[in-house]
């Protein structure tokens, strides 16, 4: 470890524009690591909630009540056709002012939803809008005759959904879901706009404090996102392969 740090210390002396400061200075290293960790947490939380929103939305879209369907449709169209960045600002600044506050130490008033909380809410709703349509398309891809076969075997509506329609719909949805989730991970950078201390935010503070660290830190950000997206794509592809049914295109 010490040798690696020494190497980068030497590097910056030889090439002043390539200051990999976070390789030898603990404070900057801490920033980078906490930024990466925040990006991962943010991504995982948003992935989770956006999928939940997608499932609930797809379920509600199949409702017999026209008003429920209209509300879901309105939600989808609004979040799909407005910029996610402005959504973030709207959630955090415009809606954030109405959130109640609490006082953890009796001195400071802290809103119960932090900027990280708002980022998770906003980005989950954004990606969730796409997920609703993806899941809906998956459900509709299950032929009516397969449902009928299940009901003629005495399956209840809930059983038909749980054991037949849902497992098949998930398989149909996976490729599109994969795409959307990759997009979501990339969109988490926009939480920068409300000062969520994720990787991009931390990197910007580093290269503002140490302009010599600009190029190395940019490179780092690039590499980390490529790796994160790569891991997600590979695990999703692995899941897709695992779910593949022999003898079917799915």
């Amino acid at each position: 470890m010490y040798l690696i740090a020494e190497f980068f210390r030497q590097l910056v002396e030889d090439y002043p524009r390539w200051n990999f400061i976070w390789m030898y200075e603990p404070v900057q290293q801490e920033k980078v690591l906490s930024g990466i960790w925040m990006t991962i947490q943010l991504s995982v939380a948003c992935l989770f909630f956006s999928v939940i929103i997608g499932i609930i939305g797809a379920f509600l879209q199949g409702s017999r009540n026209a008003i429920v369907r209209m509300v879901v449709q309105g939600y989808i169209q609004f979040f799909r056709n407005t910029p996610p960045y402005v959504q973030l600002l709207f959630f955090y600044f415009a809606l954030g002012q109405f959130t109640p506050t609490y006082s953890p130490d009796g001195w400071l008033e802290v809103p119960i939803i932090s900027n990280v909380g708002w980022a998770i809410i906003s980005l989950s709703f954004f990606a969730g809008a796409f997920n609703v349509e993806i899941f809906r398309a998956g459900i509709e891809a299950v032929p009516e005759s397969t449902r009928e076969a299940a009901s003629s075997l005495g399956f209840s509506r809930a059983q038909t959904f749980r054991y037949i329609v849902f497992p098949l719909a998930v398989r149909v949805s996976l490729p599109a879901l994969n795409n959307n989730l990759v997009n979501l991970v990339k969109t988490t950078t926009q939480a920068f706009g409300i000062a969520v201390p994720e990787l991009l935010y931390q990197s910007v503070t580093i290269w503002n404090d140490y302009p010599s660290a600009l190029y190395p830190t940019m490179l780092l950000v690039f590499v980390v996102y490529i790796v994160l997206v790569g891991v997600l794509v590979m695990s999703m592809n692995g899941w897709e392969r695992q779910m593949r049914i022999p003898g079917y295109g799915l």
Binding site: P143, S145, T146, E148, A149, A150, S151, S152, L153, G154, F155, Q159, Y163, I164, P167, L168, R171, I245, G247, Y248, L250
Partner: peptide
């Protein structure tokens, strides 16, 4: 439907289950 079994023109097997799982599903569930 416990008393009446039905077979369709398009078989309508559940594609994500093996042959025997298709047979076992309804009695189990």
């Amino acid at each position: 439907r416990k008393k009446v079994g039905m077979v369709f023109q398009q078989y309508n097997l559940f594609p994500h289950k093996t042959a025997i799982e298709n047979v076992m599903m309804a009695p189990l569930l």
